[in-house]
């Protein structure tokens, strides 16, 4: 429960940052924090007491209780790499926005777009 609460705190931090911060780059950082919160939550669902990492060692047939759940690990592994590629794309866009409008402040951008 404590761990879920920490994930909720990170998520709230990220979404509040996305909504309240004035600068688009800081909003992007906040979005990354939110993504990590979701990943932390998923990975915590994969944990099993008394289990080990999902890599088969020597020995007999594996039993399900001996290993962590590999499915959330797989999903979150790909999610992390997708998140970095979307972050890179967003940063490329922000560099263009900055060089064209001379600002990354949301309010000033809206004023100049009008």
């Amino acid at each position: 429960m404590t761990i879920y609460a920490f994930a909720a705190a990170l998520f709230t931090l990220g979404i509040a940052g996305m909504a309240l911060l004035p600068n688009l780059l800081r909003k992007l950082l906040a979005m990354n924090v939110m993504q990590v919160a979701v990943i932390v939550f998923f990975v915590s669902l994969a944990f099993k007491d008394g289990a080990t990492v999902p890599i088969l060692g020597q020995g007999g047939a594996p039993r399900a209780a001996e290993f962590m759940n590999p499915l959330p690990h797989t999903l979150m592994l790909t999610a992390i790499v997708v998140s970095v590629s979307t972050t890179g794309l967003a940063l490329g866009l922000l560099v263009r926005i900055r060089s064209r409008f001379r600002t990354l402040n949301e309010q000033r951008l809206l004023d100049r777009l009008r």
Binding site: T2, Y4, L45, F47, D49, A64, F67, P70
Partner: peptide
């Protein structure tokens, strides 16, 4: 939600035993 680390949680009892035992 199920307790953290619960081996009998739904996430750990559906589908994933098959992955662990047969992969």
């Amino acid at each position: 939600l199920p307790e953290f680390g619960d081996p009998a949680s739904p996430a750990s009892t559906h589908l994933s035993p098959r992955f662990i035992e047969d992969a």
